[in-house]
């Protein structure tokens, strides 16, 4: 039982990060109709951002995370304005190809700047175990989970309660009608993309201290983010959160009880199962009626 709980807790922590990756990707897809293949590279760059600021320059971890988040907010806006907006009247696969190109460019850029050897960010929090009943928590893992949940909650509140958040939802549901309300849908695109980029970078910066950081680390994360988005239902925000948490737990239990060699396969098994059983996603229903 104790072992099971431990796997569950570890799974929820990783799952929180998957959920974070998933909500950004799903919202970018829902709003802009773009399948963003560079999402994993934003994650990778976020980890390198923290490596540079925290490990190499000695800036406190939280501040490094914040600075990197702000930088990638701007970075996302530049990518949207410079690459994606000029392509918005092209067929959807053109923008998709552009994001594939961007992901190749970014991972190679990282290769040039930081070289291919995996690096350790180092532990920003004391390495102690806190025993809660039968399970052991470490401060970094608690921090990762709490931060992921707060970001998800914050994003949800932003979409739910603010004027601009509502404009994003309106654009998501009916782009033309939103424009007729006086909503600048280009601004909505830019904010969505820039927010999704930043949140992926934060995810990288959060998980960085636990794993090693290297230029190609984004690829598998991209693939898993897609798994989360598809399993949750394309464009489905709560679906992505649930699928992300579920994937984390499934991976952790699978690695613990079956074989850790299968850890990365579980995401794809999850997509296959969901596509067979519920092709519209776990919380799926047909979107965009009318």
């Amino acid at each position: 039982m104790a072992e099971f709980l431990q796997h569950l807790i570890n799974g929820l922590m990783i799952g929180g990060i998957y959920a974070l990756m998933g909500i950004g990707l799903t919202l970018i897809f829902g709003i802009m109709n773009i399948v963003n293949f560079s999402h994993g590279e934003f994650y990778m760059l976020g980890a390198f951002g923290v490596l540079t600021l925290f490990t190499m320059m000695g800036i406190p971890y939280l501040l490094a995370l914040l600075l990197s988040a702000v930088f990638f907010l701007l970075f996302g806006a530049v990518v949207e304005r410079g690459i994606l907006r000029p392509l918005q009247n092209q067929p959807v696969d053109v923008a998709m190809l552009a994001t594939i190109g961007l992901s190749i460019f970014l991972s190679n850029l990282a290769l040039i700047i930081w070289d291919p050897t995996p690096k350790d960010i180092g532990m920003p929090f004391p390495l102690i175990g806190i025993n809660v009943g039968p399970i052991t928590l470490t401060p970094i893992r608690v921090f990762i989970f709490v931060a992921a949940m707060l970001l998800i909650l914050g994003s949800h509140m932003f979409l739910r309660n603010t004027r601009f958040g509502k404009a994003i939802r309106a654009t998501f549901q009916d782009r033309e009608a939103a424009a007729l309300m006086g909503i600048n849908t280009n601004t909505v695109n830019m904010v969505t993309f820039s927010w999704g980029t930043s949140i992926a970078a934060i995810a990288g910066g959060l998980l960085g201290p636990i794993f090693q950081v290297f230029p190609t680390m984004g690829a598998i994360v991209s693939a898993k983010s897609f798994a989360v988005v598809i399993a949750g239902g394309l464009g489905n925000f709560p679906g992505a959160i649930l699928a992300g948490l579920l994937l984390g737990v499934a991976e952790s239990l699978g690695a613990g009880y079956i074989s850790s060699g299968y850890r990365d396969a579980i995401a794809f098994i999850l997509i296959i199962v969901v596509l067979i059983v519920r092709p519209t996603g776990i919380l799926g229903k047909a979107r965009r009626l009318g």
Partner: peptide
């Protein structure tokens, strides 16, 4: 062309967006 997943009140708020 109402926003189907927003409430009636939110739809009206969107009308007043500008």
């Amino acid at each position: 062309r109402v926003f189907p997943e927003m409430t009636v009140k939110e739809n009206l708020e969107m009308g007043a967006f500008t």
